[in-house]
Design a protein around this nucleic acid. Structure first.
Length: 480
RNA sequence: GGCGACGUGGCCGAGUGGUUAGGCAGAGGUCUGCAAAACCUUGUACAGCGGUUCAAAUCCGCUCGUCGCCUCCA
């Protein structure tokens, strides 16, 4: 069965047919880098990361482009609004490009923590001004855009298919929306391709229209996606909130430029807090930097990946706590598996083949991670039973370990290559080994009072002792 | 107002005409000196109302409710 992807252009699941066989090209709208990325961004980028990883797992040669928007879009309405980048630059008393550079770095830093694989290319909007101007001139020549007062607008009424992506009819678009007073636009829905720069505007470029200007929002993505992925590529993604106007406007331009553009549109759903959308403008956001102080990034990744990318996820600390418990269940199994595995035995893929099949079947169905996780939990269950036997089959252990590493690790990204051990320095390990020995001696002497004292006091500082037939083991507690 | 998504047991979350999703939390048990972990047992839910059907959480209609987009947003 082929991979099925929900195409939000058609509103249906469609078999994935890539432009070039065996390859998968994907463009995802990246962040506007004027402030720190928050949990809502994580939802989008972790979702696309899982999609990318699964495409790779399925054998596609992937090419992933995600832009960095380093020119601001207007805050308010039309001309009286303020550019976000410039506002932040003024508040931080920094050059706009310094602001962009810093927040770009910080964005990658938090994404790295979340295990999000970096895009192959992260093109900047400001690095593609000539390409954007070129596209704008073509649209002007074709009569799809017009110049007004030094700015250039795309005339949506010239595109008969405008609105097809988001199911909108131009004539009905004003209903309920605020009425624009004065405008350079012919129709309120027309969107800026290029804006005339007022005096003192810090980010501006030479243009053939009024002398100085800066690009509108939607052109960068059309230009950069097609430059690097070709006129026609496989997947164009972004958050649900970008569907209109952003993606609609991209499509209109691509059509005007006679580019076939994206075959599949994937939109990830939003993340809410107490039922309300998390967003920068409402202020109800929590940055990933702050969240990492309390929760391991892997928990956050699990929390996001465990729900379907098209579902709304509601954030709460309680939910993250639950996610942590669930994730621990899988991690415990993998840890035991690795502790029991004999290194010389290699996986031959003989055991648990049904689980792998079911996992892939779930992921083939529009990347249904909730079902995929259920399969992993069932596998975990069976593996735990296997491990509790006296002499578990080593080949089965190797196969199970391999499955968890590939499905849970490579694809879902929630099983690290080594569990716990990496964060523990050697001194701590040495000290703890002494305590284990001491406690064992005390237990053998049935001095439970002092044996338990050691366990309780270590527990207080985040080290958990676990007794079993083979002796006492220990592990670090999770942050929360 | 327009467009769209959605409403499943305490919470999260699959399912989609008749047969166990899965996880967390809770309860009881096994193991253990006691814990922890693991394992076993335990929940008969599908917003409401009407209709189709031998049979509906699943199809159809209506109602109610929640959320998103229509302004920058992932």
């Amino acid at each position: 069965m082929p991979l099925q992807i929900y195409n939000s252009y058609s509103g249906k699941k469609e078999p994935f047919m890539s432009v070039q066989e065996g390859q998968a090209s994907m463009y995802v709208c990246g962040p506007t880098v004027y402030s720190d990325s928050h949990l809502g961004h994580a939802k989008a980028y972790v979702s696309f990361d899982v999609i990318l990883r699964y495409l790779r797992y399925r054998g596609y040669k992937t090419f992933y482009v995600q832009n960095i928007t380093d020119v601001g879009h207007l805050l308010g309405e039309d001309n009286d609004g303020e550019d976000r980048m410039l506002k932040q630059a003024r508040e931080l008393d920094q050059e706009p490009m310094v602001v962009a550079e810093n927040f770009t770095r910080r964005h990658f830093e938090v994404m790295d923590c979340l295990g999000v694989i970096r895009p192959d290319i992260s093109p900047r909007a400001t690095g593609h001004i000539p390409e954007q101007l070129e596209a704008i001139e073509i649209l002007l020549k074709k009569g799809l855009a017009y110049e007004s007062n030094g700015s250039v607008y795309f005339e949506i009424s010239k595109d008969p298919k405008y609105g097809e992506l988001s199911n909108r009819i131009i004539e009905e678009m004003q209903g309920g929306a605020r009425v624009k007073v004065r405008s350079e636009k012919r129709h309120p829905g027309d969107f800026a391709l290029w804006k005339k720069a007022e005096k003192g505007h810090l980010m501006r470029w030479r243009d053939p229209f009024s002398g100085w200007g800066y690009p509108g929002w939607h052109t960068e993505c059309v230009v950069m996606s097609t430059r690097y992925l070709g006129k026609e590529f496989d997947i164009h993604g972004g958050g649900m909130d970008l569907k209109f106007p952003h993606h609609e406007c991209e499509i209109a331009q691509a059509r005007g430029l006679e580019k076939p553009f994206a075959r599949n549109w994937i939109h990830t759903n939003i993340l809410t807090v107490g039922g309300q959308k998390m967003s920068k403008s409402t202020g109800n956001f929590i940055t990933l930097f702050d969240l990492f102080k309390k929760f391991d990034p892997l928990i956050i990744r699990y929390f996001i990946a465990a729900s379907h990318y098209r579902s709304v996820v509601d954030f709460s600390e309680r939910a993250l706590g639950d996610a942590n418990n669930s994730l621990n269940r899988l991690k415990q199994t993998v840890k035991k598996l690795r502790d029991n595995k004999q290194s010389k035995i290699k996986s031959k893929g003989k055991y648990f083949v049904e689980y792998k099949k079911r996992f892939c079947h779930a992921m083939d169905d529009d990347f249904s991670t909730p079902k995929a996780f259920a399969v992993l939990f069932e596998l975990s269950h069976e593996v735990n039973n296997l491990l509790s036997k006296r002499d578990p089959d080593q080949e089965a252990i190797a196969d199970a370990e391999c499955l968890f590493s590939s499905l849970g690790g490579d694809v879902l990204g929630i099983i690290p290559e080594s569990i716990e051990k990496e964060q523990v320095d050697l001194n701590l390990k040495g000290v703890l080994d002494i305590f284990v020995e001491l406690r064992t001696n005390l237990r053998n002497r049935k001095d439970y009072e002092n044996a338990d004292l050691i366990r309780d006091r270590l527990d207080d500082i985040g080290i958990v002792f676990k007794d079993s037939h083979e002796g006492t083991g220990w592990e670090k507690k999770n942050k929360n």
